[in-house]
Design a protein around this nucleic acid. Structure first.
Length: 481
DNA sequence: TTTTGAGTTGTTCGA
DNA sequence: GTCGAACAACTCAAA
């Protein structure tokens, strides 16, 4: 018989919210006193990068406040997840542990072992789904295999009823008599020592409430313009919900519910946006079924691709010094705010992988460290798509032209002028290709190419044809074998 | 098993 | 300036 006087641990991970939280609902249903915990565990190859840690710090602070509103104290710990859980169980006499599942390969392995160990020790251990509409193993094609193409995958998903938000009766929470020790949030060391995060505070409010406000406003109004505005980095036309979704401050079921409530789930913009949630799901589907993909290309022939590793090129790209204004604007926006507009991510990624022939993994690592929304599934999938080595990949001859992309999606140059201020006096005509401006005009605008702003790191046509040749070669190679 | 239709996000060239 | 075709062939999903 379960002893309901013994508390349960509610183990938070990437589900930093109280509503729509099935593990919390189970904890309440057990009638046990609830002890919420978060363990900062840096084990593994994909420990959160600097920007993610910044977000996590604030999300935890916000979560602790929400819990306090219900009489609960969040216990913070640093160390190995299994070890810390064991300690917490000893300290609290807990008889059960509840959590919501993570889907990164390392987390799956770790959590599986923990669940077994807890059960072996005679504890109740249960996990739930808070992060996805459909878990990766729930969706399969008619042969029982995973999907590798988005459109049929999403079509299949949409044949199921939309999963409902999990109800959490917060009024029935039981509170323990004593609390385990907690580290102070600052002791987790999530905030940077060097103050590079000033711009983050201007760009973001990393709380659930702010995320919900954004979601509601977006579902109500902004989504009608999503189809036409989402590719414009100079406009606030995207949802900017990605970091909230990554940390589970908002769940995808809540997104669908908000769209339904505002009557925008069946509009053109609404369907387009919800398909982006579908891409997030698809990325997790792929990561689960192809767990090597964060490190290795899904298409095997890419193992021997002739990348031209070059530290100088990688660094110029990272620092926003490629000489292509739209790319440099994006890379600087990323550094300053922890986020880059999706359209610009594609242009910048394409330049690194195709024009510069740098391995996509180098770009993925940089994004991992600098994005507040860094997500192993989406990041991996995005980079493999760009490099043409993943599922449903871009055809090899699709090489973004950073000049025409800039002119098309930042036509008045507002985005470039914001992030590359040394070019801001240049007229629109030359803003995306300063090297074509006449000498005297450049001088009049205070631009000296090669000094105040770099020459293009590689010519567009040169880079393009070099990339096409390399991909052509790969095709020949794989045809031979 | 074989066949058929289709596939996130583009660029360039020539009419 | 605008428009359609070519870029290449391959893999996936379903009938």
């Amino acid at each position: 018989m379960p002893d309901t006087d013994a508390p349960c641990l509610l183990w938070f991970r990437q589900d930093l919210r109280l509503e729509d939280n099935p593990a919390l609902a189970a904890a309440i249903a057990s009638e046990r006193p609830v002890v919420p915990v978060y363990i900062w565990d840096e084990a593994g190859d994909w420990s959160p990068g600097g920007a993610s840690r910044w977000w996590l710090h604030h999300a935890l602070e916000d979560l602790a406040k929400s819990l306090a509103g219900h009489g609960l104290r969040l216990a913070l710990r640093t160390g190995d997840s299994a070890e810390e859980l064991k300690r917490l169980i000893a300290e609290t006499g807990a008889g059960a542990v509840y959590w919501n599942r993570c889907y990164e390969p390392a987390a799956i392995a770790r959590d599986k072992a923990i669940k077994q160990a807890l059960k072996d020790a005679g504890l109740e251990a249960e996990s739930f789904n808070a992060s996805l509409l459909f878990e990766p193993w729930e969706i399969q094609n008619k042969s029982g295999k995973p999907f590798q193409v988005f459109t049929p995958y999403w079509k299949r998903c949409r044949e199921f009823p939309t999963p409902a938000v999990a109800k959490v009766p917060l009024g029935k929470l039981a509170v323990p008599a004593t609390w385990p020790d907690s580290e102070a949030l600052e002791e987790l060391g999530l905030l940077p020592e060097i103050k590079w995060d000033a711009g983050f505070y201007e760009a973001w409010t990393p709380t659930r409430r702010a995320g919900l406000q954004r979601l509601t406003a977006f579902a109500k109004e902004a989504v009608s313009a999503y189809g036409s505005q989402r590719d414009r980095p100079d406009v606030d036309g995207t949802s900017r919900l990605s970091p909230y979704l990554h940390f589970g401050q908002i769940g995808p079921r809540e997104v669908f519910a908000a769209f339904r409530e505002k009557g925008s789930d069946d509009s053109v913009g609404g369907r387009k946006y919800l398909a982006e949630i579908g891409w997030r799901e698809f990325s997790y589907h792929l990561l689960y079924h192809f767990p090597e993909t964060p490190e290795r290309a899904l298409r095997e022939q890419f193992a021997d691709f002739p990348w031209r590793k070059n530290r100088r090129h990688l660094q110029a790209w990272q620092r926003g010094q490629t000489g292509y204004p739209i790319v440099d604007a994006g890379m600087r926006q990323l550094w300053a705010t922890g986020w880059m507009h999706n359209r610009v991510r594609m242009i910048a990624a394409s330049l690194l992988v195709k024009h510069l022939l740098q391995p996509w993994q180098a770009g993925a690592e940089w994004f991992w460290d600098t994005l507040v929304d860094a997500d192993l599934a989406s990041n991996t999938q995005g980079w493999q798509w760009t490099a043409g080595c993943g599922a449903d990949a871009a055809p090899y001859f699709r090489v973004f032209n950073p000049i025409t992309q800039g002119e098309k999606f930042d036509p008045e140059g507002e985005y470039v002028r914001q992030w590359v201020p040394e070019l801001k006096r240049l007229p629109d005509k030359y803003l995306h290709k300063p090297w074509e401006a006449p000498e005297n005009l450049l001088a009049a605008c205070g631009v000296e190419l090669g000094d105040s702003y770099p020459e293009p790191i590689v010519g567009h046509f040169e880079g393009r044809s070099r990339a096409l040749a390399a991909f052509e070669e790969l095709k020949k190679q794989s045809g031979k074998s």
